[in-house]
Structure formats: structure tokens, C-alpha cells
Design a protein around this nucleic acid. Structure first.
Lengths: 399, 399
DNA sequence: CTGTTAGCGCTTTCAG
DNA sequence: CTGAAAGCGCTAACAG
């Protein structure tokens, strides 16, 4: 690395940008006409004047100052886009839709990445407010009505993405969580798994997670025959009834994975490991040794063991599970447990994991459309736009 | 989906935000004092006045308008961050560093995602200019000096990330490409591979790709014994000399993968397949049928076959290769070819692919620091900051 | 210590 | 068709 450091501070004499006044002078006319030209009011300009202006602008390489325009007009075409976590492929994809829509509607998105920090979130929201954005699209984490106060309180329209915010009434667009979770669960059930673990991050605060988890439990309860009682929701809730390998009812569990806390994750995964070993009929002795069960190294899972599947509530959770399983059971972990995930990251295809793809692009696009309408003054009651997910079956669940 | 559409357009009567004038009136003083308060010039305010102002601000929930401040001051603390492709994990990681640095330096990054569209790139650069950002950090694709003209021409400082821009002299921070490529190549060589394919996107335009490819060729040429002549660089260049399985010199090839063109990719991959099948001594009758060379279809890799490795110039290329190989050779493709990639995406660990991790966070952080210095007027000659990559050996190359 | 006075660059009445 | 004048919300000399 070569980093010279001749710190010779001397406030650069930037070749001052041309202003509307300069152009007016250069074109031998008044600022008003220039302004008219800039705003496309061509019909009100004589061809001659128009030509002179055009020339002057070119000669001076003039570019109108958006800030100034915004100040005067009271609208700057800026909207804020608050993202909880760019590390999640979901977010990036939604963003693509947002960008496309903004482009189409002449808006400029101010992208703010909270990087999973509630504090950042607050800071950005506040910042967006001071920059007088015309609206905000929010996909955040700990957002409570209170956090959104500075913006919503200022009368700045907001539309929510993926999750609702408790006290707040606002448009929201996202996945049809209930349907998606049900779709996934049914697929697993139909594929004949006897035990399904729904892994999800702490969901008390996040509506989408809540809905997914609830729908999973319901779907488990509604298996084929009679309806089952809903299991209690807790660290590790239990849903449905025990099914003995064959055709009985499949068993359902909820596993909370607090990705923000390594120790907790560790504990949850241990819980899971125990279940897998049990279901799979294979004793597994910790990090050193392994599987000293069935004599022959034949198949990893004993013949009559229960088939177990993991249902990840989103990509980050799925990745966490996959990494763990791979570390524990080796490259061949999928022969032991199936994995299904909501979200469809690139490694899913590579790894053969079944997923439920969210219509991310459209989610982003619609969000901007909603926001745009609000900005234009539409007064409709808060709307919810729930888009369907698409099941992509891969090797993991279709052996 | 439920989307009501009672489009009752009625330009919302937003509860107008309080202005500095309102506060002044409310506090029974002049705007100047308010301004002073806002700018922390507390020492110049009597405790009494100060208290009144404080109260007034709170009462009115006043928030200074950044646009107006910027207009007056001539600086708005905004910097532009132009990204070529958020889909690439590298980009997101760099962004984290950028955000952290901005936070620390009191800057607000305007993130612009070109999504691999040269046109977008131009548009955004232009836009950033009109918003009068104080500087830009550029990580772009087709950027030629010309595209950057609007900004650099305006005297707006710019710092490049990852790649240089031909005609432009500006600070740049990125990976030490030569060292990284050499590191990777040497690792492969030392691991005993007999044939190495360096896969890279078209590199004529992108300095970092160029450097990586060149360094790869050099490293191949500099193998153990005598130096070998540099192979020609072309669609499929050849480097180094043929080595017969055992201890001879390893053979090197460059494979260009134009990810933007499916057909081209197809062709390049076919080329690669042939090589793999040949090296691997195994007839593989793919869906089209091919390789009618070696008779027996015995084990995937014959005993005395050459060991072949792929060296991907970055994550997108690596992903493309991995997906293809998996599709062609099944889940067990890694027993046939080894894969090493510059960049360390999450699926690398999951999949056991060896990588060279870039110090992404630091790259982003340094870029902002450089830019900040420039904004403050530092006049030093253009600097290059080359950070080292870290080799992360995984199963793929360490059997 | 505090207020008055000019604008920053642009849009928008309101008269020509 | 065209321009002069009055600000948008805020800061920065200058005087008190």
C-alpha cells in the first residue's frame, strides 16, 4: 500500500459552477426565460430566444442546482429508502424494483442502510426529514411507531415494505406471508416429511415473521385428517402431533434463531442437532467423533428413521442453518435433512435447496408507486398489497 | 392482493414545517441567534436566550432544512457513491465501510446503483452533479474519462474504487490485484494442479481484471524452474508450458466469460468442459453427447489424469462456473475440478470453495477518507491505496 | 452578546 | 412572448 500524505490543506478553488444568472447574461436575457426553458415551457419562448439560451447553456456547461430548485418549489423529488440489511439478498432485489420505479417516475431514492442497527435507523429517518424528502419507503427492524414519528409526524408519506409497524397506519407491500408459509409447509408435508422445524428469527417485533410462523403452525395443525391443536409458541414450540415414520401426522416445531446473538444461536442449533440425530437414528458425538451408530457406513440415515425437514423463514436463517449442518454433518448434510427456505439466494440453486421466491422486484416497484400516489395527494385508506411467493422445488426436498 | 384505488387526488395540506423564522418569533429573537444556536456557537449566546431558543425549537419540533443550509453555505455534506452492481457481495461489503466512514466524518452518502447499465451510470453521475454533492466515490463499469467529465469537470473530487479510469488521474483504493492473483496462482501450483484456467469477464476495459489476468500469466510463467514465455491473451490464451501429469510445469489458460451475454458464456463454458473432460480422462456424455475420446467411463477422474483447477477472477464468475459445473457434473463436481475465487461470498464457505478475501470494508472506509481529504482541499498528487487480499483455503483445493 | 441586512440559485407572480 | 421583483430557509458579514 502506498499512501502519500502531503496534507497541504488549501480549500480548493473549484471552478465555480455557472448559475442561472450567468446563463441569462450569456444569452442576453433575463433569468425568467432561462427558468422557463429549464422547465420545458418551450411554447412560451420565441425560437430565437430559445436558441440563444440553448447555446449559452451548452457554452457554460450549465446544470441547474437541484437544491435551489427544491428550496423554491417546495419539492425536491427525493424519497428516502430505509433498508434494514443490505446483506440480505431480498433487500437488494427489492431495491432493484425501487430504482426502476423511481427512474420511471422521476424520483431519486436516497438509500439509507441501517445495517441492523436500530440507532442507525433512527438517525437516518431523522436525516431524511431534514433533507425534506417527499416520502419514505421503510423496511426496517426495530421500527416502532415512535421511530417513524419524525417523518410521519411531519406529514411525510411513508409506505412499509415487508413488515407492518404496530401503531402506524400506512400503505404496505410485501409477500403474502400466510400463503407462502402454508405453501412451503404443504409441500413438505406432501413430500412425506415426518418432522418439520420452522426456523425463524425472534418474531415478536416483526409482523412478517409472526405471520409466517403462525401460518406454519396452522398448516401443520390442518394436516390431512383432523385439525390439530396449535402448539404453544415459545423458544421451541411444538406443533401438530407425533407421527411414527409412516403415514401418521407429521410433527412440527418452531426454532427461534437469534442471529444477532451467537451464543443463543449455538444453543438453538444444539437443540436442533439433538432432534436431527434422534430422528435420523444416528448418534453423533460432538465435534471430534461422529456417527458411531449403524455398523456399515451405508446410508447416513437409517432405513426406518423419520424424515426431517427444516423450513427457514428467510435466507439469513437458511444460510445459518446450512453452514451449521455442513460443518456438523459434512458436505453430504442434505442426505440427512431437507432444507426449504423463504427467499431464493444464489446459493440455493448451487446447493439444491428448495425455496419460495418472493416477487422482490415487484414489491419494490409497487412500493414506489404507492408512495408516489401519496405524494401526489391520494387520500385513500391505508392499503395492503400482498404478493404471492413462488415455490421452487429443488433436490433437497424432492429426492 | 387487495389494492383499493379511490384515487382522490387532493394535494395534501402537509402541516408546514416550522422554519427558522417561526422559531425566532416563538423565541422572541432574531433568526441570527437561532442560526448560531443551530451551529453550536453556544459560547456566544446568553444562557437565557439559549434556553428560550431551546424551548421554542422543542415546542415547534423544528428541524433545520438541510437544502437551504446547503444552498447558503455552498456545501451540503452529501457525497455520491456510484455502484456498478449491488448484486455482487463485494459491493455491499465495500458499502459498509463507506457508510461507517461517512458516519464518522459527518457525510451523507447518496447511493446510486447503476445495476450494470452504462446508461444508468451516466445518468446518475449527472444527477449527482446537479445535487451538488461535494465528492463522489466511483466503482463503475464502462466508465471512461468522458463519463466522469460532468463531475470531475465541475471540480468535484472523485476517488475510484477497485478500478482505474483510463484518462483520469484520481485517488484510487482497491485490492492489490497483482499480489492477489499471484497468491492464488501460487497456491494452486503448490497444491499440485497440472492445469489451471483463469476465468475472467472481458478485461480490456477494467483495470483490475487486466491486472489479475496478467499477474496470473506471469505467475504461471515464473513457475519453479525457468521462466516461460507469456502466452497470448485472447479469448482463450495459453500460458506456461504443457506439463505431463507428474512434476512438469503446469499449464495455464485464460477463459473469458462475458456474463452479459448468455450465448457467449455458453460457448466459453463448452470450451472449458472439453478441457475438463480431457484432463480428467473421463468420457462424459452430456445432453448433447460429446467426448468420444477415452474409451472407458470408469471413475470420474482416472488415476493418472491431470488435476485441473479453476481460478475465478471474482465472485460472479465463480458463481457462474460453479452453477455450470454443478449442472454438468452433479453435486459432486468438486471432485473433478477445484475452484478458487477472488472475493469471498457466503456460499464459498457453504460449498467449500477456496477464496481470496478482499479487505472490502477497509477499501470502502479508506475511499471515504481520501475523498474527505480532497473535499477539505488536500492537493497531493493522485494516490493509490492497494490493500492485500487474504487466502482462505477450503476443501476445494486442499484435498 | 444580539439583531439587521444581504444574498445562495432558482421559481413565480405580475406587469409589460 | 419577456423581464423585474419578491421570496424559499438559512447563513454570514456587519454593525450595534
Amino acid at each position: 500500500m502506498s499512501t502519500t500524505s502531503t496534507t497541504s490543506t488549501t480549500p480548493q478553488t473549484a471552478p465555480r459552477r455557472a448559475t442561472i444568472t450567468d446563463v441569462a447574461r450569456e444569452a442576453g436575457t433575463g433569468k425568467t426565460s432561462i427558468s422557463r426553458y429549464l422547465n420545458g415551457e418551450m411554447s412560451v419562448l420565441s425560437p430565437d430566444l430559445r436558441a440563444r439560451i440553448e447555446a449559452a447553456i451548452a457554452r457554460l456547461d450549465y446544470q441547474p442546482n437541484q437544491m435551489a430548485r427544491g428550496l423554491k418549489r417546495g419539492r425536491n423529488r427525493l424519497i428516502g429508502m430505509l433498508l434494514a440489511d443490505l446483506t440480505n439478498p431480498y433487500t437488494v432485489e427489492v431495491l432493484q424494483g425501487v430504482e426502476a420505479a423511481c427512474h420511471a417516475l422521476g424520483l431519486m431514492p436516497l438509500i439509507c442502510h441501517a445495517a441492523n442497527e436500530v440507532e442507525m435507523e433512527r438517525r437516518y429517518l431523522q436525516l431524511l426529514t431534514t433533507y425534506r424528502v417527499e416520502g419514505v419507503i421503510v423496511n426496517a427492524l426495530g421500527v416502532r411507531e415512535e421511530t417513524l414519528r419524525p417523518v410521519v409526524g411531519s406529514g411525510i408519506p411513508a409506505v412499509l415494505v415487508d413488515r407492518l409497524v404496530d401503531g402506524l397506519v400506512a400503505d404496505m407491500v410485501g409477500l403474502d406471508n400466510r400463503a407462502a408459509a402454508e405453501l412451503g409447509t404443504r409441500h413438505l408435508l406432501e413430500s412425506g416429511f415426518d418432522e418439520i422445524w420452522f426456523a425463524v428469527q425472534p418474531f415478536e417485533q416483526v409482523s412478517s415473521r409472526q405471520l409466517r410462523e403462525a401460518a406454519f403452525r396452522e398448516a401443520m395443525g390442518a394436516q390431512a385428517g383432523q385439525a390439530g391443536q396449535a402448539g404453544q409458541a415459545g423458544q421451541v414450540g411444538q406443533v401438530g402431533q407425533v407421527g411414527q415414520g409412516g403415514k401418521g401426522r407429521a410433527r412440527g416445531h418452531t426454532l427461534v434463531l437469534n442471529l444477532a446473538d451467537t451464543a443463543e444461536v449455538e444453543r438453538s442449533l444444539a437443540e436442533l442437532d439433538r432432534a436431527i440425530d434422534a430422528a435420523t437414528n444416528a448418534g453423533h458425538s460432538g465435534r471430534g467423533g461422529n456417527l458411531a451408530n449403524s455398523g456399515g457406513a451405508a446410508r447416513p440415515a437409517a432405513p426406518h428413521s423419520r424424515r426431517i425437514a427444516l423450513f427457514a423463514a428467510n435466507a439469513p436463517v437458511a444460510l445459518c442453518l446450512a453452514l451449521h449442518l455442513k460443518a456438523r454433518y459434512g458436505a453430504d448434510w442434505q442426505s440427512r435433512v431437507a432444507l426449504l427456505s423463504i427467499d431464493d439466494p444464489d446459493w440455493a440453486e448451487l446447493t439444491g435447496v428448495t425455496t419460495i421466491r418472493q416477487p422482490t422486484y415487484e414489491i419494490g416497484y409497487r412500493a414506489v408507486e404507492f408512495l408516489h400516489e401519496r405524494i401526489e395527494g391520494v387520500q385513500t385508506a391505508a392499503r395492503d398489497c400482498l404478493l404471492p411467493g413462488e415455490l421452487i422445488v429443488r433436490a433437497s426436498t424432492s429426492r
